[in-house]
Structures are given as structure tokens and as C-alpha cells.
Simulated assay, not measured.
Amino acid sequence: MLRAVALFPLVALLAACSDDPPEPAPVETEIPEELQGVELPEIIAEDAGIGTPMEERVATIGLLNKRNNLSQDLELKPGEQRRVGDVIIRLRACERTAPWEFEKDEGGFVQVLVRERGTEDEFRRVFSGWLFKNKPSINVVEHPIYDVWVKSCAMEFPGEE
């Protein structure tokens, strides 16, 4: 008990020191001479992208109706949408990791709209975001009737066989 009483003033004194030390100023450095003459890679225009152009990619989206246990696959290109009963699935983008990357995954930016009960053509957006094949827990379509997930994204990269 004597030790705890002796340590209390020390702890209180340290807690009172709340001023953070100032951050050090950035140090300007120069590029070494042997690296100054290195050719840099060509800059690729933002809209050019790598691999299959966005409008030519095809995503396979799984749709499950939990009420009747019916599931179906929808093949969509970015910019397309499809209505199945009371749900509309829109695909905005589709991507997959390059073949030279270690962690393989495929995904798509998907929007899910569900028809409001008691209406003819009023839909409410229940999900808008990226869905990933190998990481379904990152983003989940939370709806009591419909489940939506990305099964694949068909695209190619330069040099891929």
C-alpha cells in the first residue's frame, strides 16, 4: 500500500504534462544524381485505365429472394440495370485484381432498389456501394427479403493469357 501511495504523486505529475512536443520541421532532400536520369514510366490517362475498358466488362451478380428461396444470376455491364420482380439491380463499375497481385478479389459497385409496398412504381434505394466476392462482410446488402452479391467480374489485363 505504501508503494501505491508513493506512486500516486508521480502519476498525477505525469498526467499534468499534456503538452505534446512540437512536430519536427520537414527536411528537404535532393534526388541522388544516379537517380535523376532514370526514365519515368509513361503516365496513363485517367480514362484509359488498364485492361478491358469499363463498358466492355461483364459482372455476374447473384440475387436471392429469401421469401421463396429463388436465386438467379444476372449478367450486367457497367451502366446497365435489370428489374426482377420488386427489385432493381444497377451496376456502376466492375473490377478485379490484376493477375500479378497476391490477394485475388473481384467486385462491383452495385445499387439495389426495392419497390415500396403498396405502390406501383416507387422504388427506394436500400444499398449503394462496393460488393466484393471474397470479402462479403465488408459491405452487406441488409434487406429482409433480398440478398445480392458479386459472383465475378469478367475482364482482361495486358499480357494475360
Rank of each mutant, 00 (worst) to 15 (best):
S152N: 15
K66M: 03
F109C: 06
G107A: 06
F102V: 14
F109P: 00
V141L: 06
L70N: 15
G79K: 01
G118Q: 12
E101D: 08
D73N: 13
V110M: 01
V148Q: 05
V110R: 00
F123A: 02
F127W: 03
L40Y: 05
F109N: 11
E34Y: 11
E120N: 14
I43A: 15
V140G: 01
R83D: 01
N69P: 03
I50C: 13
V141Q: 07
L131T: 02
F132T: 12
I88A: 01
R125Y: 11
P144H: 03
S71Q: 13
N65E: 07
R92T: 09
G108W: 01
V148F: 08
R117L: 08
P144I: 08
E42F: 02
S137T: 14
I89M: 00
E142G: 09
I89A: 02
F123H: 01
F123P: 10
N65L: 08
P41H: 04
E95Y: 04
L40H: 14
W130C: 07
V87H: 01
G118M: 03
D121P: 06
L113W: 11
R57V: 00
V84W: 14
E120I: 12
V84Q: 11
E80D: 10
N134H: 09
K77A: 06
I43G: 04
G129V: 03
K151Q: 15
W130A: 10
V112W: 04
R96G: 04
G79L: 08
E39L: 08
G37V: 09
I88D: 07
A45Y: 13
W100C: 00
E39R: 04
W130Q: 09
G85F: 03
G107I: 00
D121E: 11
G51F: 08
L35Q: 12
A98Y: 04
V141W: 07
W130R: 14
D121R: 13
T119R: 01
P53I: 09
